[in-house]
């Protein structure tokens, strides 16, 4: 399944992508690369289109202009069949887990395997239990999704995302709303999974400190473009306005605290 002879050093390449929805421009010439075998973080203030970027990479939407290359294939030009074939080499962890609510934990993790292969039941069982063991939830295999805490649901979803050993694992806000312990667990899993399975990871997040611990490369998006990129350490030391504001969580700066409005005094005294 794994592409044995990678032709390019980048698994994902976004080339000069424009995308707008409802008359609003989300991306205006976005260009970024995701190197193979590394953890790449995509950061940026809310509403800069981080999730939209993931939807472009997974082929759920098509750019108005530009190319989205995954494994040297232009996602926006693929037929449905070819896109589904490509997606079989991807795994995605959704913000809320997106577990199928009518199935147990075991069946959720087994779902992609059952759908795409005819493996014997004993093999599926071993495969699923190994992945659940990796995320520490082998004991919970009988539970239903509504019986899981938020952190547990996300770990099950991670087991499901990696059950078919994908090339590319995509994490959408993996830390949002988690307690510190669960966050630590996910962080460690993220690093271990990436290194042990030799896969490429893309993490969308705005938890600057957490992501700095694991990412090999970070991009900061703003205004439809990449405004800064580099190792998390380099970004921390970057003194340019927006990067400094974002990395240090300053309330006001290039991204204004106030939503555009008329003059405050004038409005009060009117």
């Amino acid at each position: 399944m794994l592409n044995s002879s990678p032709t390019t050093p980048n698994l994902v390449e976004i080339r000069d992508v424009y995308y707008s929805v409802g008359g609003r421009d989300i991306f205006k010439g976005l260009t970024l690369n995701v190197p193979r075998g590394k953890i790449t973080a995509i950061m940026g203030p809310s509403g800069t289109g981080k999730t939209t970027l993931l939807r472009l990479i997974t082929g759920q939407i098509r750019p108005t202009r530009g190319q989205v290359l995954v494994d040297d294939q232009d996602v926006s030009k693929l037929s449905r069949r070819a896109l589904y074939a490509l997606r079989q080499r991807m795994g995605m962890l959704f913000q809320n887990g997106a577990l199928l609510t009518d199935m147990s934990v075991f069946e959720n993790v087994a779902f992609p395997v059952r759908e795409h292969t005819d493996l014997p039941e004993s093999l599926i069982r071993n495969l699923v239990l190994t992945k659940l063991q990796a995320v520490g939830l082998r004991g919970a295999y009988k539970l239903m999704p509504h019986e899981l805490s938020g952190g547990m649901a996300r770990r099950v979803a991670l087991a499901r995302a990696m059950v078919r050993d994908p090339h590319l694992l995509i994490y959408d806000e993996p830390f949002a709303g988690l307690d510190p312990i669960s966050m630590g667990v996910i962080l460690r899993l993220l690093r271990n999974v990436n290194d042990a399975l030799a896969i490429t990871s893309i993490v969308v997040s705005h938890d600057v400190d957490e992501i700095a611990q694991v990412a090999d490369l970070s991009y900061i998006l703003a205004g439809g473009k990449v405004v800064a990129s580099g190792t998390p350490k380099a970004l921390k030391e970057d003194q340019s306005g927006l990067v400094r504001q974002f990395m240090n969580g300053l309330p006001d700066g290039p991204v204004p605290f106030h939503y555009p409005a008329d003059d405050y005094f004038k409005e009060l005294l009117a």
Binding site: T58, Q60, Y84, A85, R87, Q88, M90, G91, M92, F94, Q95, N96, A98, L99, L100, T101, F111, P112, E115, H116, R160
Partner: peptide
């Protein structure tokens, strides 16, 4: 997101 998750799993 269950429907999208299925699509991403190529189902």
């Amino acid at each position: 997101d269950q429907l999208v998750a299925m699509e991403i799993m190529a189902v």
